[in-house]
Amino acid sequence: MNAGVVRTLAGKLGELALTLFLASVVIFSAVLLTPGDPVAALAGGIRPTPELIEAIRAQHHLDDPVWQQYLHWVGGVLTGDLGTSFVYKTDVAALIAPRIGVTVLLVLYTAVLIAIFGIGSGVVAATRGPRADRAVLIGTSIGMAMPTFVVAILLIWVFARVLGWFPVYGAGEGFLDSLYHLTLPAISLAVLYIAFFSRITRGAVVGQLHAEHVDTARVRGIPRSQIFRRHVFLNASPQILAVSGVTVAGLFATSAIAEQAFGIGGLGSLLTEAAARKDLPVVQVISLLLVVVFVVLNAVADIAIAVIDPDSAKPRRNA
């Protein structure tokens, strides 16, 4: 590994820690910013009894200074003590643990679809002539306007009423059955991002096709497929990677919509439900979790870019 990559890694770790710290402060302060008594905020949509008030004050150290409350909260999260949901009357950890798996599977499934169809159609648009370009452009224009919930209801209608090939409810059991059940949710999540990735890929590839170093390769007689692989796609990949981290992280949030539409008990549906019942402790922990996912995935993408393009790691003066 060269110095640039190491430098990126070190720099990213620092940024990562700082962003996580700041984000945790913002999420923690939700309790303070909620109108009314913090006890009420933490109790969620239920009316607390005097015993419950006592329990909440004790658990969240509400009699301590604010910064100590923060430290207790963060310390708890770091040591696996995620607090208690007074709405669900159980540990937040116990609520989250069984739901993570299905959401992770759904997000990965979606990411695979996006990678195959988004990048694939972008490459086709960039390289297969004006007609293919036009067709993909029309497709992606529509795709960019197709939110998850619209695709979801279309799929539910088509498959529940007309075709019936895929289940439209529930998450299934076991790996293959889960994949089977998650197919329609994954498609509904993927459509918008497929269009987005198609556009990004097309732009990046077209930019590289006209790059001067590709002229060099052409005049040297390098075969077309090899030029594409070694000089066009490789050089376009940082631009695609740059949006990948954000996208996959965002999928963890938007999966809530697909979970809701297809009746899947995942992390997203828990987040939605908890928010609806004003269960702040649960919402806070899931939010923080999603931020962690975002920051980590983004750092991974940045490191991948630095491996391909060492110059991306060199900060410019005044930058």
């Binding site: 940024e15 700082l18 962003t19 700041l22 984000a23 913002v26 999420i27 939700a30 910013l33 909620t34 109108p35 905020a41 954000v246 992280a249 965002g250 963890f252 949030a253 938007t254 809530a256 987040l271 939605t272 908890a274 928010a275 609806a276 004003k278 269960d279 702040l280 919402v283 806070q284 899931i286 939010s287 999603l290 931020v291 975002f294 920051v295 983004n298």
Partner: peptide, 25 residues
């Protein structure tokens, strides 16, 4: 830039849901 990065790290939908949990539907 740090402020920008920070807000960027919290997906829009999550921030909106957090707001709902704080201020109600």
């Amino acid at each position: 830039s740090r402020v920008i990065e920070l807000i960027f790290a919290i997906p829009g939908l999550v921030l909106a849901v957090l707001a709902v949990a704080m201020f109600g539907k």
